[in-house]
Design a protein around this nucleic acid. Structure first.
Lengths: 196, 196
DNA sequence: GTCTATAAAAGGATAGAC
DNA sequence: GTCTATCCTTTTATAGAC
């Protein structure tokens, strides 16, 4: 990634927009955040904003995609594991706007015809893969036993992570990390038991 | 509950509105569902609709509150247990609009100043209590061992249930019931193990 | 209870100048 | 790239007649 070059200004502006969008979403929620307000805080007209992102949906998709890229580099490296999962969740507590956007916008986009629907379908598959790899890594290390379906466990951990973020938005005192740790150890215990 | 009386017509109308709202939300999502469209399908003007529910938020809260009342009678009876939890989730698969509304509207309402924020805070506490009672019932029956914090487990099951509904909205092939069963048995297994 | 009419605002998007 | 100007749509909500 270049920090300078012919397009450096444009890239900086783009990233400023992504970050300000998060601010506004954190304060007013995704439904009530307007492109006008985001543009205003960046010091741009609404039309100016549309130069960078052609639509409200593109803007929010770009915010989430940027997050995924950062997380991929920081937490799925060199290979997915449970520490990475915890790292992502813990980091999320520092960016409430991101969590708000993710939960609210993905819910909005679950309608089939929504412009971001495809994005969320693909993202779910990608996250699932990472989580399943994390489970398999734990099996390789012996933390998890053989009596578990990694894909099933991955869905469960994903669901819990998503649901905990929902709970945390409503009540920020929820301790997502400890809850997730608990789930992980319970799944580990279960995976050592032969099924009847 | 009376099915006739001086206000029977009004109550019927009210319930028709609640049901039509669900239809529209299922098709367009909660963000893009409009009071006008709901009113139109009921055969009412938008102003007519506002006679029953003073605002968009009140309408959606009423829908969810009606659901809670039905579920309370049907699935938490005579006392909360895991079967009830499964029953609710299984029933939800038959009303996608309700799930869409719940996920989307509760996310929108997590912002502190939202008119429905208080409702969701209280609801979360009530659901938590029901889930914790279910865990304790399982402890009494011996399905769960003593080595588990019922409140912690309740949060986890709640989170998984919410997260699974999120996943299910995006991909209806997700089997929420079997995933939830898996979580329950894993927690049960864990609860029989003494902690180090 | 229900309607018509309308307020009043806000939203997203586009055209065209600079 | 950025602005101004504007369009057009849609939304919720209210006032007042019937």
């Amino acid at each position: 990634m270049n920090n300078r070059g012919p397009y450096a200004k444009g890239r900086e502006r783009r990233e400023e927009i992504l970050s300000v969008a998060l601010e506004v979403v954190a304060e007013r929620g995704c439904r009530n955040a307007s492109n006008r307000e985001i543009a205003r805080r960046v010091g741009l007209s609404q039309a100016g904003l549309m130069h960078y992102f052609g639509s409200r949906e593109e803007l929010y998709m770009a915010v989430l995609q940027a997050r995924d890229l950062r997380d991929e580099a920081r937490y799925w490296n060199p290979t997915p594991d449970f520490r990475g999962i915890l790292g992502i969740i813990e980091n999320n507590t520092r960016v409430p706007g991101l969590v708000q956007l993710y939960v609210e916008f993905s819910a909005e986009a679950s309608i089939g015809k929504h412009p971001a629907h495809g994005y969320f379908v693909e993202r779910a598959a990608a996250v699932h893969e990472h989580f399943a790899l994390s489970v398999r890594a734990a099996q390789d290390s012996g933390e998890f036993g053989p009596h578990i379906d990694a894909d099933e466990a991955a869905d469960l951990v994903m669901a819990a992570a998503d649901g905990l973020q929902q709970q945390w938005l409503i009540d920020p005192s929820v301790d997502m990390i400890s809850r997730l740790r608990h789930l992980w150890t319970a799944l580990a215990a279960d995976s050592h038991l032969a099924k009847s």
